[in-house]
Design a protein around this nucleic acid. Sequence first.
DNA 1: TTCCTTGCAAATCGTTTGCATAATG
DNA 2: CATTATGCAAACGATTTGCAAGGAA
Lengths: 128, 128
Amino acid sequence: MAARNFSRQRESIKEFLMARKDHPTADIIYQNVRSQNPNISLGTVYRNLTLLADEVEINRLNVGDGTDHFDANTSPHYHFVCTECGQVIDLEMDSIEFITSAAAARFEGQITGHKTYFYGICGSCLKL
Amino acid sequence: MAARNFSRQRESIKEFLMARKDHPTADIIYQNVRSQNPNISLGTVYRNLTLLADEVEINRLNVGDGTDHFDANTSPHYHFVCTECGQVIDLEMDSIEFITSAAAARFEGQITGHKTYFYGICGSCLKL
DNA sequence: TTCCTTGCAAATCGTTTGCATAATG
DNA sequence: CATTATGCAAACGATTTGCAAGGAA
């Protein structure tokens, strides 16, 4: 379905995203990718992020701070959001996948997945 | 702390929200409250929703569709979002509150809560 | 050549805000 | 009177889009 051509810009974006352990916003990606690709436009960054997210090559996170964050790690895992500094951190935790069945138990529709974000204060902010 | 005056507009908003079982957006609230309050402005709706949410009299939901939804039910419960029609539905399910401790187990920061949304196809859409 | 992609700028959408006026206590 | 709330319109930030030009297959 996706007759996709090669694009230097898209490669830079993927490359940058895969190298980061945090979960940058479109604008941060734009700022950084510009060093390798000075003429890239913010629109192109958005277009490619949306394209990659649609094809599940990356993940779009709605952490609730008004701007989307992106994650090149598409394997199932959860995120923590610091309410002090806004940082988005990967959590290492046991699977809670079965909460989907808990939700499905008394529901008449069909549940295919869930999104969960944890909130609190991160280690660095606790020390301040 | 909140030296709050009475306001006809705020009352209409609360009243409308409490009467709804779905989870309307600011604009839908605005459309509806106008019948009782023809001169109310969208800005006032937003201001009051933000005020009420800040004082936890209502809940703001970020379901990921780009616009916030509001819920007058502040007791802990979970929501389902239909990926077909966008409807937001209350779920009746057992508590999964302990997922917070699951997340906290190997995390150095302090986790105070979580937000979870379930996705899938609602009963009505399944029948189409 | 064909069709995918881009850069650029303008447009859109949801939400917030400044300001002068009106309502509350 | 002091303060809070409102309507209106302008401002905003994030994201999308139209279009003509550039690049890949």
